[in-house]
């Protein structure tokens, strides 16, 4: 049973890591508590659903298209809501509040339009076969999704470490003022970061919707709390930290449910969060910063 539980933990952890990738990027670079992130996740899944069911796309072609659609939505929302606040150097609280209002409006509009029913992709869109290795069982779909997550993480790390764009983004994350002086157009860079984060959210929505076979407007909102835990424990803006924290959280939840009590499965995530913050205030892997805001 232990081997299977470890696999369960890794699979769950991968979904947390996937959700947190774009979230931590948005947070770490744009320095904004953007509560609309979960909406891009839902939007990606719903667009993919529409592409597959109505336009007859295959799931692997629908995935990038839906991801880009979510990215575009993210750029538009960011531009509409936050440009003004950013140029006015408004306090953190204002952006929190504005995205809070936007979340309420966006989700309500989406449910008013589509209803809150769960929808599913056609059952034959991905193979249902399973591999049995000893006492461990994984489905082909789960492995494919795990592979996709690994590719997304690698691509993101390459983008940030190996390209000029990545350099600019990292400069912005570290010292926004200096970046501006060095001739980086921060408005354009903000749009690009929003786009990448939105794409990652959208891709996450498609993959997780696929794995759980359930897509509904509030699916992103339901990931938000866990998402916060992961990006805080991993350290804001820290991609590697988010992946590790996501995996650890997945394993911890599964082990708690499997060996302690399933009643504590949800609470344990938050307990860990609080303990980590009490002992290591800038995340498990974060550097100690003088200002932690």
């Amino acid at each position: 049973m232990l081997a299977q539980q470890l696999v369960n933990g890794v699979l769950l952890g991968a979904t947390y890591a996937l959700f947190a990738l774009g979230f931590t990027l948005m947070f770490g670079v744009l320095k904004v508590i953007n509560l609309t992130y979960g909406f891009y996740f839902s939007a990606g899944a719903l667009v993919a659903l529409w592409l597959v069911r109505t336009l007859g796309f295959g799931i692997w072609t629908a995935l990038p298209v839906a991801a880009m659609a979510a990215g575009l939505i993210a750029v538009v929302v960011d531009w509409l809501l936050l440009t003004r606040l950013r140029s006015a150097k408004a306090p953190e609280l204002a952006s929190l509040m504005v995205t809070l209002g936007a979340v309420l409006a966006l989700y309500s509009a989406l449910t008013a339009w589509l209803g809150s029913d769960i929808r599913r992709l056609p059952p034959d869109v991905i193979s249902g076969e399973a591999l049995q290795i000893g006492s461990v069982r994984v489905t082909l779909a789960q492995l494919l999704i795990l592979g996709a997550v690994a590719i997304l993480i690698a691509a993101l790390i390459w983008l940030l470490r190996g390209t000029k764009l990545g350099l600019a983004i990292r400069a912005m994350a570290d010292r926004p003022d200096a970046a501006e002086l060095m001739g980086i157009n921060t408005l354009r860079a903000a749009a690009i970061v929003s786009f990448i984060s939105g794409c990652l959210a959208g891709a996450g929505g498609v993959l997780i919707g696929l794995q759980r076979n359930a897509i509904q407007p509030y699916m992103g909102e339901e990931m938000m709390l866990r998402g916060f835990v992961v990006i805080i424990v991993g350290g804001l803006g820290d991609i590697r930290g988010a992946v590790i924290a996501g995996m650890l959280l997945g394993l911890l939840e599964v082990m708690t449910a499997g060996y302690v009590s399933s009643n504590l499965k949800e609470a344990v995530a938050f307990l860990v969060l609080v303990v980590v913050l009490w002992t290591r205030p800038s995340g498990l892997f974060g550097r100690a910063m003088t200002r932690r805001a």
Partner: peptide, 11 residues
């Protein structure tokens, strides 16, 4: 609102 039940079911 959970969507992961693998730990409970494995047990």
């Amino acid at each position: 609102k959970d969507s992961d039940f693998s730990a409970q079911l494995t047990k």
